[in-house]
Each structure stands twice: as structure tokens, then as C-alpha cells.
Design a protein around this nucleic acid. Structure first.
Lengths: 222, 222
DNA sequence: CGGTTGCTTCGGCCGCGAACGAAGCATTGC
DNA sequence: GCAATGCTTCGTTCGCGGCCGAAGCAACCG
């Protein structure tokens, strides 16, 4: 157990894992950039994370794509973040990308940040979703609403993962929607080109079409 | 975030935190024994864990009692253990206390191990409790059953914490019952003297009275 | 008051491991 | 074929941090 924690406990590796919280598989070089160290150092870190089975590897040509080994790893990282937030206030320089992250980002595979919390608020307000402390459910009205939006709920329901759960947002400190429903909603937003990924990181931008769509469907002013 | 993980990443500190997962407040010397290092080294570790607010301190005479700062810390530790279990199989020597832990132990404030999973199984089997992946609920029949046993559910319900949730058992690899319900049930078992703590650790022994009671109330053969 | 116990602070030793430079393999492209 | 790119392995340096011995406080006890 200490070994796993020690792996996350190194700043470079923590950066790597956070970058992978975006949910996408990234190459070793991209991760080297994210970690802020040279490729050869990164390679060592990736090797350790891989043999400890925190990451899985996909070889493709001369690229090596690394992904988190599964949701349990993401959940662990989130819980560590939560504890870190309860800690003494830390000095953290504000930056451009930091603001973007606060605004909208992916959280493993669903939407977080101001946008994620806003979506959750609207869905709860209209009783499309009921969100408890540890789990949530989509109402009949919510299923219809999301269905009209084009979100594939039946596919989400068939998956072997938790259908709907709250996920504590580390910037807003309020829950957004995770689980299969959160992932399906995020997928649909990508398909509709409402949101787009920024470079290699977790940050998202809302497109003009997204601005319109969110206003029409969710009455959400960005 | 890396700082928090690094704190857990040291073997001595990991031992301290695991010992405190028992839910009780322990003195610095007891924790030194649990960690396997000298008191002065332990003191340094406790200082760090305290300033990082993973632990809280209660001074009582010349003793200093340390406790986990809250359920979020316990939850983090559990999630790290879960990931550690998914990792490559580790060589772990079997010991007497290890067996005791597998058999019955506290998990922060509720019952885990063979006993904890057995209790959960029986409650689910009789539809006294419904347990999902991320949350659970006590049925009307279950409330009556637990009430007759003397478990104070109304008090548990009034608390500001999650009422009933599954907690993945790291030895049995199946869920037992956590949350306020799990804590209330454990409290009652202590009151009835069905179970007793072993020394300073998390391990529990089942008393002869407990053996009878568990058989009569839960048809649980130990 | 000493004496004991519980815990912390100080100082110095030592080892692990993170970091990078350089070189070694693969894969792709011209 | 040669060169470029992507990534890893090797070897070395070096600094952080865990560890303990000794000493310093603080609280109880006679």
C-alpha cells in the first residue's frame, strides 16, 4: 500500500497521473512535457507506474500510449485530491491554463469545472437527475430529456460500471455528474462539437455552437 | 496532491495510518509500536501528518491521542488499498495477527473481514438491506430487524454522514456495510459484548456470547 | 521535591531514488 | 541506404528525508 502511495507521491509522477485523468491515452513524450522533466526521466517513471499496474500500455507504431489502468485508479486520485483540499491552504500561482481548468475540464471521462457543476445543477433543478451523497439516478423525465438530446442512455446502462454517481469537483467543491451517465453526456457534447479539448491536457473550450446549445437545452449562460 | 500521497507513501507513516483506520485515537507510543520505529522518529511523522491535517490531536494529561482527521482520510486510504490489491501479487508472510485481521476487524468504525462480509450477506439475503455499487438502503423489514436487535438507526439517520454504503473488503474482495448504519451496527455489537478489540490494533475477537448471538440473530456460523 | 513516564527537538549519519547526459534500439520516411 | 523521430537503458551525480542517540520539556506520583 505504501508503495502505491509512494508512486503517486512523487511530483513528476503525480503530474503524469493527473494528465491521464483527462481519460485519454497519451504518448510518453506528451507525458514528459506534462510532468516537466526530460523524456528519459519520464520513461523511468512510466516504467514504474506500469509494472505497478497503475497504467496500461498500448504500442502503436513508434508511439507508446499510456492510459490509467481503470476507474479505480481515477477514483483513488480523486480521493487523494479531496484530502489534499482539506489540508492547509497552499500557495498556488494563478495561470492561464489554471483558469481554463477551473472553467471546464474532463474528469477521467466526464465533464467537470464550472460547466460540469452547472450541468449537474440544471439537471437536478428540473428533476432530471436525483443525486445523493454516494449515488444518483436518472428520472423518467430525465431519461426522455437526455434521449432527445441524443445521449445514449441504454448503452450507458448496459455497461458494467456504476451508472450514475456524484463526483466531488475539486475547484467548485460541489458535485458534478460522473459514472456512465456523465461519460455518455460528455461523449454527446463532443459529438455535437459543443466542447473541444485544449491541446494535450484536461482543459475544455466551449464552442460557439456549444454556447448556443447549452443555452437552449439547459438555459445555461456561460 | 503529491505531498499528501508522499505522506502516505512512507512505510512507517502508512503503518500509522493503517493502525488509525481502526477508528480509535491512539497515543504516540502506541503508534510508534505499530509503525515499528522509535518514538522520536514517530514523533516526526506524527508532526507531519498533523500539519498536513491528515490527523487531529487530542491532548489528555501527558498523553497525546491522534485520530484520523475524518472519514475522507479513511476513504482515501481504502481507495489506495484497492489499487494496491489490483497490482502485481506481492509476497506477504502469513502471521497470527494477519489471520486475525482477515477474520474480523474494524474498518474505521464498522466491521470488516469474514465477519463483516458475513453480516452483510445475511442482511442482503433477508432483504433487510439493499446494497448497490456505490450506495445502499435499509428496508422497512431491515429497520425493524435492526431495531429489535437494539441498533439505534434513528440516531444514525440524523448524522451528517452517508447513511449506508458498501465498503469493499480488501481481504474478502466483496462488500461489507459501511456508513452510519455500519457504524451503528458495530457499536451495538460492542455494547452486547459480541466482539472485543484485540490489543491496540484493528483486529476483533468474537466472544462466546457473540458466537451465540450471531447464530441466533443472523444464523451466522463462525 | 527527585524520579518516572510520555513525548518532542536537535544533530549527524546514511541510503534511496530522482534527475540528466550520453548512448543504444526500434520505427518511419526520403 | 541514411537520417530523423520516439523511446528506453546505462551510469553518474546529488540532494532530500528517514532513522536513531542524546538531550530537553512537560505532566503525574510518591
Amino acid at each position: 500500500m505504501a508503495e502505491v502511495a509512494a508512486l503517486v507521491g512523487d511530483p513528476a509522477r503525480a503530474n503524469i497521473l493527473c494528465a491521464l485523468l483527462g481519460g485519454r491515452a497519451l504518448t510518453a513524450t506528451e507525458l514528459a512535457f506534462a510532468a516537466g522533466v526530460t523524456p528519459q526521466t519520464t520513461s523511468g517513471h512510466l516504467g514504474k507506474l506500469h509494472t505497478a499496474r497503475l497504467l496500461v500500455l498500448m504500442k502503436q507504431g513508434r508511439h507508446r500510449y499510456y492510459r490509467l489502468a481503470g476507474p479505480h485508479v481515477g477514483q483513488m486520485l480523486e480521493s487523494i485530491m479531496n484530502v489534499a483540499l482539506e489540508g492547509p491552504p497552499r500557495f498556488q500561482p494563478k495561470s492561464r491554463t489554471e483558469d481554463q481548468l477551473r472553467h471546464a475540464r474532463t474528469c477521467y471521462d466526464h465533464i467537470a469545472g464550472t460547466l460540469g457543476v452547472g450541468l449537474a445543477d440544471r439537471l437536478i433543478e428540473h428533476e432530471h437527475v436525483i443525486l445523493g451523497d454516494e449515488a444518483g439516478e436518472v428520472t423518467a423525465a430525465g431519461a426522455e430529456f437526455l434521449g432527445k438530446l441524443g445521449v445514449d442512455l441504454s448503452h450507458a446502462r448496459s455497461k458494467r460500471r456504476v451508472f450514475c454517481r456524484p463526483c466531488l469537483d475539486w475547484t467548485e467543491r460541489r458535485p458534478h455528474i460522473g459514472g456512465a451517465v456523465g461519460a455518455a453526456l460528455a461523449d454527446r457534447c463532443f459529438d455535437l462539437k459543443w466542447i473541444e479539448r485544449v491541446r494535450d491536457g484536461r482543459a475544455l473550450t466551449i464552442t460557439p455552437a456549444g454556447r448556443r446549445g447549452l443555452m437552449e437545452s439547459f438555459s445555461l449562460q456561460i
